[in-house]
Simulated scan of single mutants.
Amino acid sequence: MSTELTLQLIDTHAGGDVSRIVIGGISRLPGDTVREQMHYLRDDADGLRKLLLNEPYGIPEMSVDLLVPATLPEAQAGYIIMEVMGYPIYSGSNTICTATAVLESGLVPKQEGRQRFSLESPAGLVQIEAQVRDGVVESITCEGLPSYIHTHNASINVPGIGRVNYSVAYSGGFYALVDAAELGFSLTREEERALNDCAFAIVEALQAERGFSHHTLGDVGPLPFLHFMGPVDQIADNFYRSRSTTYVHPGVICRSPTGTGTSARLALMHHEGRIRAGDKLETVSLRDTGFIGEMTGTHSSGTRSSGTCPSGTHESGTHQMVENTITGRAYVLARSEIVINCDDPMVECSGLRHILTSG
Results as ranks from 00 to 15, higher is better:
Ala99Met: 11
Val84Ile: 13
Glu83Lys: 04
Ala101Asn: 05
Leu103Phe: 11
Val108Cys: 11
Val84Gly: 05
Met85Pro: 00
Ser118Glu: 08
Asn94Glu: 07
Glu83Ser: 09
Glu83Tyr: 00
Lys110Asp: 09
Gly113Pro: 09
Tyr87Trp: 10
Glu120Ser: 05
Gly113Tyr: 08
Gly92Phe: 02
Tyr90Arg: 03
Leu119Ala: 12
Pro109Ala: 05
Tyr87Glu: 10
Tyr87Lys: 12
Ser93Phe: 02
Ala99Arg: 12
Thr100Arg: 06
Ala99Asn: 05
Val102Ser: 02
Pro109Tyr: 07
Ser93Arg: 13
Ile89Glu: 13
Val84Leu: 08
Thr95Cys: 10
Gly86Ser: 11
Glu104Asn: 14
Ser105Asn: 14
Glu104Leu: 05
Arg114Trp: 02
Pro88Leu: 09
Gly113Lys: 11
Ala101Ile: 06
Gly106Met: 11
Gly86Lys: 11
Tyr90Val: 07
Pro109Arg: 05
Pro109Leu: 05
Thr100Val: 10
Met85Cys: 11
Leu119Glu: 08
Thr98Ile: 11
Gly113Thr: 12
Leu107Gln: 07
Asn94Thr: 14
Met85Ala: 15
Ser105Glu: 10
Ile89Lys: 09
Glu120Arg: 01
Leu103Ala: 03
Pro88Tyr: 04
Arg114Pro: 01
Arg116Ile: 08
Gly113Leu: 14
Tyr90Glu: 01
Pro88Asp: 03
Ala101Val: 12
Leu119Cys: 10
Leu107Lys: 02
Ser91Leu: 00
Val108Glu: 09
Val102Asn: 14
Leu119Val: 02
Pro109Asp: 10
Ser93Thr: 15
Phe117Leu: 04
Pro88Glu: 03
Ile96Thr: 10
Glu104His: 06
Glu83Arg: 02
Leu103Glu: 11
Gln115Tyr: 00
Ser93Trp: 00
Glu83Thr: 15
Gly86Trp: 15
Glu83Cys: 06
Val102Tyr: 13
Pro109Asn: 07
Glu83Gly: 06
Leu119Ile: 04
Glu120Asn: 03
Val108Ser: 05
Ala101His: 06
Ala101Phe: 02
Thr98Lys: 06
Pro109His: 04
Glu120Leu: 09
Val108Trp: 05
Ser118Ala: 15
Gly86Asp: 04
Tyr87Ile: 07
Glu104Gly: 13
Ser93Leu: 01
Gln111Tyr: 01
Ile89Arg: 11
Gln111Asp: 08
Asn94Arg: 08
Ile96Asn: 06
Gly86His: 09
Lys110Ile: 11
Ile96Tyr: 12
Ser105Pro: 07
Val102Arg: 10
Ser93Asp: 08
Gln111Cys: 12
Ala99Pro: 15
Thr100Phe: 11
Gly86Arg: 13
Val102His: 03
